[in-house]
Structures are given as structure tokens and as C-alpha cells.
């Protein structure tokens, strides 16, 4: 297929996945800040969230260096000028879809187009905190719908592979970032009672749709090590790093071309290290350090996918 088409499909899927994960992250923050804690702690939560997706500086620039939770939420969810907001992600997804609408099934195109038309209908300035909850729920639902419709209607061809590649590489990156910022936050928070800690961990699990999975998988109380294991190493957890990288590797193999050997090798190596890794080793290195390295490696694979498949081959 055309390199440019593959590029649009890949980014369309990435932007939808990113919008969903932003919604998850903001949703869990909203829950976390309901717990009794100091104002400074709440501020730290939001500052680290901004930092984790790389928009702290641009937020400061437009908000006089002040972290105000409601403004941060607005900035990350609906600010049209913030290229990293949910609003901008869904717009970018729609633009990418529009550029290859002929490659999408009409059901899939209509799903994305309808999402965009509905988003434009939201009165952004008027949205209160209670409506934000519903908004995040809506973003997640739309993302589910996108995946469902593409799964159910698209041919299993190259187009499908690049779309899935985009989904899994973005999800791997986002899960790593969410886990990193929240894990740190909870670990470094002042010691509190068991109940408080329970809510913190369960909010994190909820944010990646892993609360029920955790219960099923461990049938035991929530501990930091198990949370990390679930989100990093479990092969049967669809948002874990292990799962995402193994899917990525499989789709890469399907679309392989003469230039992509090294990319496949790196992806396979990363997937294997997660598949056979042990959580004790990870925690010994330090989770933060481990995740930072993971994000670097996943970005490297992303860049290699771009140069192997998506950027125009020169004559």
C-alpha cells in the first residue's frame, strides 16, 4: 500500500488511542484528588501529570506558571490551542482518517467523523466538573467503538496492520507514562492509612481498566509490586507493556519489507524481555528508571517504523 496511506492509518489509530488514554489519566486524577490530602499534594499530582505527557512548559506559558486543577483539566481535555489535548487528538485523528477515507470502511469513517462532529458540538467553555466525568466516559466509549468497528469491518490486510501497530505502540507508551507518574506519586506521598493507599492504587487500576483484572488475576489485596507486574509483565492483560509489545512484533512481522529487519529485531527483543522478565528484577532497577528506558526504546521503534515504511522512499 502507499506509504502515505499507511502513515495516515497509523497516526489515526495513535491519536485515537492517545485521546482515550488522556481521558483515562484525567479521570483517575479527578478521583485521586477526592481523597483527603494537602493542597500541595494535589498540585504535585497535576504538575506531574502535565510533565508526563510533555506539556508542562506550554501549560505554564499560557497559565502564568500556576497549577490550578480545573484549568489543567481544561487545558488537557479541551483546549484547542494545546496540540496535545483530547480535542486536538480527535481532530488529528479525523484529519488523518479524512486523508485516507477511501481506505477505511464506510462504517469506520462514519464512526470517526461522527465523533468529531459531536465533539465540535460540545460547549467547551460551559463544561462543569460533573460533566467532565461524562465527557471522559464518552471519549473512552468512542475509542472502544473505533476499535470495535475497525475490528469487525476491516479486511485483515496491510491497512489493518498499520492501524493496529499505531494502536499498540501508542498504548505501550501511554501505559508506561501513566504507571510512571502515578506509581511515583503514590510511593512518594506521605505515609497514610491503609484505606487511603487502597484508594490510590485502585484509582490507578481503574484508569487502565485493570481493577477487575487485578482481582481476577491475584485474588488478593492490592500491593504496589503486583500492580507493577500486572501493567508491565502480564501477557494476558491487554494494556500491559508485555501484551502491547508482543502484538506490535506480530504486526511488524506481517508487514515486513526488505528494510525492516532491524526494527523487527528490536521490537522482538523488547517483547521477549517483557515476556520473560521478573518483577523483582524490574523493581530492583527501580520502576521509574525501567519505564524511562522502556519509553526510549518504544520511541526508537516508532522512529524506525516511520523510516522503514511510512516515509516516502526516495527515487
Amino acid at each position: 500500500m502507499l506509504s502515505r496511506t499507511a502513515d495516515h492509518l497509523y497516526w489515526m489509530a495513535r491519536y485515537i488511542e492517545r485521546a482515550e488514554n488522556l481521558a483515562r489519566m484525567l479521570d483517575v486524577n479527578n478521583r485521586m484528588q477526592l481523597l483527603p490530602q494537602s493542597e500541595r499534594e494535589v498540585e504535585r499530582l497535576w504538575r506531574e501529570t502535565l510533565d508526563s505527557v510533555g506539556v508542562l512548559d506550554s501549560y505554564y506559558a499560557s497559565h502564568e506558571n500556576r497549577v490550578v486543577p480545573s484549568e489543567v483539566v481544561h487545558f488537557m481535555a479541551l483546549d484547542r490551542k494545546n496540540p496535545g489535548s483530547i480535542y486536538s487528538c480527535l481532530r488529528a485523528a479525523r484529519e488523518n482518517a479524512h486523508a485516507v477515507r477511501g481506505t477505511l470502511t464506510s462504517e469506520l469513517w462514519e464512526t470517526i467523523n461522527a465523533t468529531w462532529l459531536e465533539l465540535r458540538g460540545y460547549d467547551i467553555s460551559q463544561m462543569g466538573a460533573d460533566e467532565l466525568d461524562a465527557f471522559f466516559e464518552w471519549v473512552k466509549l468512542r475509542s472502544h467503538q473505533f476499535r470495535g468497528v475497525s475490528f469487525a469491518t476491516m479486511m485483515r490486510d496491510e491497512a489493518n496492520c498499520f492501524l493496529r501497530l499505531g494502536t499498540f505502540i501508542e498504548r505501550a507508551d501511554n501505559t508506561a507514562r501513566i504507571l510512571d507518574v502515578k506509581y511515583n506519586f503514590i510511593a512518594e506521598a506521605p505515609r497514610r492509612d491503609d484505606a487511603g493507599e487502597y484508594y490510590q492504587w485502585s484509582a490507578l487500576l481503574h484508569s487502565v481498566s485493570a481493577f477487575e483484572i487485578y482481582r481476577k488475576a491475584y485474588r488478593d489485596q492490592i500491593t504496589p509490586a503486583r500492580v507493577a507486574e500486572l501493567l508491565v509483565l502480564r501477557n494476558d492483560m491487554p494494556r500491559s507493556l508485555a501484551y502491547c509489545t508482543s502484538e506490535m512484533t506480530a504486526f511488524l512481522e506481517t508487514v515486513a519489507n526488505q528494510r525492516s529487519k532491524e526494527t523487527q529485531r528490536r521490537s522482538g527483543e523488547l517483547a521477549a524481555s517483557l515476556r520473560y522478565g521478573r518483577i523483582d528484577d524490574v523493581l530492583e532497577t527501580g520502576l521509574h528508571q525501567y519505564l524511562t528506558r522502556f519509553i526510549v526504546r518504544i520511541n526508537d521503534i516508532g522512529n524506525r517504523i516511520a523510516s522503514d515504511f511510512l516515509l516516502p522512499v526516495t527515487a
Binding site: 500500500m1 502507499l2 506509504s3 519489507n257 515504511f309 511510512l310 516516502p312 522512499v313 527515487a315
Partner: peptide, 9 residues
Amino acid sequence: VFMRTTQGP
């Protein structure tokens, strides 16, 4: 004339 595809020209 060639087009640029994921599998080469």
C-alpha cells in the same frame, strides 16, 4: 512512473 509503497516502488 512509480508510487511509493510500504513494499518499495
